[in-house]
Design a protein around this nucleic acid. Sequence first.
DNA 1: GGTTCCCGCATTTTT
DNA 2: TGCGGGAACC
Length: 834
Amino acid sequence: MSSFDDSDAFEGASLSARAMAARPAPYLDGLNPAQRQAVETLDGPVLMLAGAGTGKTRALTARIAHLLARGQARTNEVLAVTFTNKAAREMKERVGRLMGQTVEGMPWMGTFHSISVKILRRHAELVGLKSNFTILDTDDQIRLMKQIIAAANIDEKRWPARQLAGLIDNWKNRAWGPEQVPSAEASAFNNVGTELYAAYQARLLTLNACDFGDLLLHVVTIFQNHPDVLEQYQRWFRYILVDEYQDTNVAQYLWLRLLAAKHKNICCVGDDDQSIYGWRGAEVGNILRFEKDFPGAQVIRLEQNYRSTEHILAAASGLISANAGRLGKTLWTEAEGGEKVRLIGHWDGEEEARWIGEEAEAIQRGTRGMEPHSLDDQAILVRASHQMRAFEDRFLTIGLPYRVIGGPRFYERLEIRDAMAYFRLAVSPDDDLAFERVVNTPKRGLGEKAQQTIQRQAREDGVSLLEGARYAVTSGQIGGKGGAQLRAFVENIDRWHQAISQRPRPAFSSATDAPSIIPGSDEAWTALEPDDFVDSDDGAVLEDESLVNLGGYSPLNHVRLAETILDEAGYTAMWQNDKTPEAPGRLENLKELVKALESFDNLQGFLEHVSLIMDNDSEDAEEKITIMTLHAAKGLEFPVVFLPGWEDGLFPSQRSMDESGLRGLEEERRLAYVGITRAEELCTISFAGNRRVYGQWQSQLPSRFIDELPAKHVEVLTPPGLYGGGYGAAGMTAGIEDRAARADVYNSPGWKRLQERSQTRPVSQPREARNVVIDLDAVSAFTEGDRVFHQKFGYGFVEGIEGDKLEVAFDKAGTKHVVASFIVSADAADDIPF
DNA sequence: GGTTCCCGCATTTTT
DNA sequence: TGCGGGAACC
């Protein structure tokens, strides 16, 4: 077992074989003492308090490798939980790399939700569902809520469905069923919140569906009401690991505590200082209470930071120390010196964007006294997404390439959701929500009236909308053009469904395929082993059978079936005929969707794991600066980071403070902490004196967080003209209100603070541009044929050397020219903490 | 049944 | 200021 999957390429096969024998635990190499302790303390509850950039993923994956290598647990006895699919995938990859290729995929490594689905499918009956239940996304949820609200005769204007959805989500996060909502909250939503909640849950059961919150809540309910079932899982999961523990909500906490109660081998990794999801139910309290919840817990602190320079770290630490009720950590680094955190004020938001654009280009050219940094290495992190606009506008004007992370996710887009609804109908024709969504998309002449007829018919007969529609057509209730089109629609669904049903399906993927064991029955249940629990996606594989002969479609695999569905539905044509500018993009997205299907064995598996396609970070050839929110940046790092908009009300956000008071403010501060600690080498904080808010000019005060930055780690860059009588032209043309605003700003404590701070150097003069040194040392470390690693492009071989650049053929990203200093030799790659 | 117009509203986001 | 949703209008 080697920690390098490509070791032969640079180490020599015979050597590595010998080395393996001599070093039984290569995954321990290079760990610092704290990390090592975190890896080797296997039994009992452990809280790994891992500060930003301290290599926690490394410790976590090494811990799993250690568990497996020592034979403490088999791969299926380790439960490893993350929040995002991305994190789960990365963990799988890294454990695989540590253990070598021999390790089979770990069936219980995944998100809270995906693991819950797996458990829930087995015991669905225990909460009144069938095991082939569908999972609703937010959109379906809202549509359902609307129906519920309408049915209750409540004015939807005063009581919007969104709000109800949010409320119910919140309750679910706190693990409250309709009956458990405390009376203090009962007045919510026009005094009928809990009634609507109950109605919603009832409706979900009739639809054989559940929402995201239910996935966890149902599992908790099952565990609480069926000790036999719980006991089985407790036995299986000998070791439990949890990533980002500070983000867990009450439901997740209960879920974990129930599962860990037997073996008590639970290792939670997190950082209370990076808890930024309180607004969606995360309880910092979970991590603060850990030692009480799990008596005898060992707390291990990872405090050596491998990411940022001294100044950046000190500035962040100083800031976060203003928060009360922390577990407390002292981050330190061996990296000395570096640039101080830079602070700059601007006249308005546009100037701020202009300045950052120029600065990014300067840094790219290497005229800022540091080694040049590609735009790929630079990021602008904002509090709220509307702040991105100013940057996009500016960058489009000057032609600075940028990429925006976030925004509407791939699978949330209209066309993707429509297509998914078609697929859902093909897989389960009784999916009423999907039916509703696309019955008249593209237009089939089925308006409100026709749809009501279908609904009424379905209700009367107690059948699905599809069956209701079928009857409405045959009985002549819906005739004419619409009727004919509806008939065709129904027939299409029948045919698609048939095409799918005739194909072999993996075991466990639906009720009809479920094993003969009745989940919940003691006897049968105890007979099951963890291994019997096959993943529906990587379990039974169709292999050669993926091409099947079918009447009407032959041969046909699920990818082609998907294309056929969209074509036959007229959906593709709908966008082809659409002349709006976004139509081509939508067709592109559909193509991408179909392409994403290729990596699945069938449509069912795809629908189950649809969320996987959302991170379709296509490797861009062109280098771009990244713009994203602070929330989205958690877990990432960039050599150069810009943090604009540090103004009171914007950051910290007024709304946060209004709604959650001190708690809200502290969470904002943690967000600021997360922002600063994303930076490796250069961090620039900025604010503007004036900003357009909803079209209105507003004068802004510098953020209180700026005050909290320790002065000796901050360098104030003075904006041009600050001393020399205002902002010149800008001030002259800005109009009376703006001049008044400026006066305000000048008199504000913030500006005074700023002026006091800018004691030493008026940095408006760009610092002396040092010569761009071509780092020949970096180049000379490599020769052609070397196996190397790049943080972004992964592994590759050196193909040539040109100046300070290397031509590298990357395994995945293709051949690229990269600055040598961005490259490490592949054997050093594992020492990079992520 | 489809289009257009107007009003209200406006963080952060994963599953 | 700009977007989305609902209502009114064609």
